[in-house]
Amino acid sequence: MDAALRDSAAKQLAEAFQTGKPVAALPPFATPRSMLDGQRVAARVLEMLDLSPCGLRLASSTSGKPVPGPVLRDRLLPEGSTLSLASLHHPRATGAVLGVLAEDLARRGDEMPVFAALHPAIDVCCWRLRDPPTTGAMAAADLAGLGSIVLGRAKRMVPMRLRISLAPAGTWRRGEEVDFEEAMMAAALAARRAGGLPQGSVLVTPLGDSLVPQAGLELHASFGRLGRVSARFA
């Protein structure tokens, strides 16, 4: 995919990011066919918007394969935030963990990153595309579905198995046990492949089940020893 075609795709996605109006569909000639092409389109989107990522988020795509994408500082929201569904296209909410790197994540290596803090989080993905992408390449181009990430209180602890539940306020779910260490290692590997990350950057891994939020919903996520976080939708 040459630079002119990448720019054509990126321009449409950048405009959708700014205006909130979804892209009907990219023309076939400007549709990325590989994950690398999709990531290059996403990089051009951020350049056109003059935005710098503060980390990496490893999201699940409709194709089932993890898709790495950027994290933007202004998309990190505090506990209890209210999100407007009018600005979110095809939203899905998932429990997640955000780790803040205590030191640089070098390009080479296979060890677990060292974290200054871990946050329980609710990851709310959405798309700039009118219809959710059906390939990993298109998901990568659309910033891996980056929407907003609501953060709970930070805690210093090592990655471990966590029992995660996501449910509307006033209901209870036992949740499922998730190997958070394995998920964070996968995110770290994706970041290393992209060239590494500096100290203070973040890694985000959505974990467990997801649901489609409705207006009026108050959503609670529980992460065992890591804590809890909530978000509201209007």
Score class of each variant (00 low, 15 high):
62 T>F: 11
178 V>Y: 01
114 V>M: 05
64 G>R: 09
58 L>K: 11
162 L>Y: 02
141 A>P: 04
31 T>S: 03
212 V>Y: 05
104 D>G: 07
157 M>C: 13
59 A>L: 08
194 A>N: 07
20 G>R: 05
99 G>Y: 00
164 I>K: 01
92 R>N: 06
113 P>C: 13
113 P>D: 09
165 S>Y: 01
175 G>V: 14
187 A>Y: 02
117 A>Y: 02
85 L>A: 14
154 A>W: 03
191 A>E: 02
66 P>E: 07
232 R>E: 06
154 A>C: 07
167 A>F: 05
114 V>D: 02
16 A>C: 10
149 I>W: 07
2 D>P: 01
112 M>P: 04
61 S>A: 15
109 G>N: 07
174 R>E: 12
228 R>F: 08
112 M>S: 11
125 C>H: 07
228 R>K: 13
25 A>L: 09
18 Q>P: 01
6 R>V: 14
189 L>G: 03
169 A>E: 15
140 A>F: 04
202 V>W: 12
21 K>D: 09
199 Q>S: 13
119 H>V: 12
180 F>P: 03
179 D>W: 07
206 P>Q: 06
160 M>E: 14
9 A>E: 00
94 T>G: 00
98 L>N: 01
39 Q>Y: 05
200 G>W: 10
203 L>P: 05
52 S>R: 13
142 D>L: 05
37 D>N: 05
68 P>W: 02
20 G>V: 14
84 S>Y: 09
86 A>D: 15
233 F>G: 08
166 L>H: 06
170 G>I: 03
207 L>A: 06
165 S>D: 05
126 C>G: 10
193 R>W: 09
233 F>C: 12
142 D>G: 03
204 V>H: 00
227 G>W: 00
146 L>H: 08
24 A>R: 15
149 I>Q: 01
99 G>F: 02
100 V>M: 14
103 E>G: 14
